[in-house]
Every structure is written in C-alpha cells, then in structure tokens.
Computed example of a mutant assay.
Amino acid sequence: MIIKSAEFITSAVQPAHYPPPDHPEIAFAGRSNVGKSSLINTLVRRKRLVKTSSTPGRTQLINFFLINGDLMLVDLPGYGYAKVPAAVRKQWGPMVETYVARRTSLKGAVVLVDARRRPEVEELNLIDWLRQHRVAVVPVLTKADKLSKTELIKQRRAAAQALDMAEEALILFSAKSRLGKEALWQRLEGILAHTDDT
C-alpha cells in the first residue's frame, strides 16, 4: 500500500468517544512491550505517528489513526504487564472487549507475539475470542531481528504449534529491518478486499 497520509484521530476509553465508524478498521493487539507502536509506525512509514515507549504498559487507551483518508488503524492497549496498577489492568479487559464486540467497522486484528517467546493462554484466548466475533486474525511474530535464522525457524514452528495454525500463517516482522512489512500489508489488503466484496 502507498501511504499518502497518516494522522492521529482520537483516543478513547468507551464507545461514546470512538470516531464515527465510517472506515474499515484494523486493530493491533498484543502484550505490553511486544512492539505494537513500532510495527504501526513501520507500516505507515512514519517515525513518530504512534508514540513508542521503553516503559511497558504505556498505552492505556484505544488510539485511532486514519490512513489515506479511508482506513483506520486502531492501537489497542497492551496486556499482561504486572507493574501497571491493578485498577488500570481491570479497566483494559472490558475496554477492549467492548470495542471488539460492538465495533461494526472492525474487519481484522493483527495479534502480535514476541518472536523470542512462545504464545501463551492469553494469545490463544484473544485469537479465539476475535474469531468468535468474526474478526479476521493476522498473527505476527515481532522482533525477528533479535534471533538468528535457525532460532527464528524453530520459534515460528513452536508458535504455530501453540496457536494450532500453519507456520506460513505467522508473519515474521522486524521494525528494524522492515522484514514482513510487505507481507503484512498484503494480508491486510486481502482482508479489506474481502470486506468490500461482502
């Protein structure tokens, strides 16, 4: 996809604060510090569209970004980071659940997993739950540059087994080398094209 424009629209906690559902939406979900902000910035060729932080758990709102005036990318709060206050962690679940369950413009979700670790029950539950709501899931293994080719092959196989899907379904991604950027856009464009047909 050729990126002509990318702009931050709004941050939201509840449906009343969401922008109007005028454009198809792709959400990005994963554990805190998995590289969501870096991945989105790489996809849209902007260095600071999404603020990155070395402190896990910094994204505590649902952030909406309009791309080319006709596609919304949605950065969901990261999960699973123990140092975030319990009250904030309790708020995240319902916030994200409400968004996924009610947002008719949500067409796909990129689920990010750090390539250096195996997916756990949270990732399995998230993928199952998204599928129950008929949201197309694109699994991505981030930080691929942190592993050797041999380790990457091994980790991809292990992740595919844990998620009960074909190895080819998992996109290897690196914000540093931009590995996987084109493959991810192709998968997302496929989801959006299918949406247009239905």
Rank of each mutant, 00 (worst) to 15 (best):
K4D: 13
E7F: 02
E7D: 04
I9E: 01
T10E: 03
S11Q: 10
A12T: 04
P15K: 02
P15G: 04
P15E: 03
A16K: 12
H17N: 11
P19S: 00
P21A: 12
H23M: 05
E25P: 08
E25L: 05
G30K: 05
R31C: 08
R31H: 07
N33E: 01
N33M: 07
K36V: 07
S37T: 00
L39D: 00
K47V: 08
K47R: 14
K51R: 12
T52E: 13
S54Y: 06
G57P: 10
R58F: 07
I62G: 03
F65Y: 14
L66F: 01
L73R: 02
L73W: 09
D75A: 11
L76A: 09
L76M: 09
G78I: 08
G78Q: 07
V84Y: 06
R89M: 12
M95T: 10
E97F: 14
Y99T: 03
Y99F: 14
R102L: 15
R103S: 06
T104P: 06
L106E: 03
L106A: 08
A109G: 08
V111M: 09
L112I: 04
V113M: 00
D114L: 09
D114F: 08
A115M: 06
R116V: 01
R116S: 00
R117D: 07
R117T: 11
P119T: 01
E120V: 14
V121P: 00
N125C: 14
L126E: 03
I127E: 02
D128G: 15
W129N: 08
L130M: 11
R131H: 12
R131Y: 07
R134P: 07
R134I: 10
A136V: 15
A136Q: 12
V137S: 12
V137L: 14
V138S: 07
V138Y: 05
V138W: 05
V138C: 11
T142C: 09
T142W: 11
A144V: 06
K146C: 07
K146H: 11
K146Y: 12
K146L: 11
K146W: 11
L147F: 02
E151S: 15
L152F: 02
K154A: 15
K154I: 12
Q155N: 11
Q155Y: 01
A159E: 00
A160K: 05
A162D: 08
L163M: 04
M165K: 14
E167N: 11
A169V: 05
F173M: 03
S174I: 05
S174W: 02
K176R: 09
R178W: 09
R178K: 12
G180S: 14
G180L: 06
K181W: 05
A183N: 12
L184Y: 03
W185M: 04
Q186M: 13
R187I: 03
R187A: 13
A193C: 06
A193H: 10
H194G: 13
D197F: 14
T198S: 05
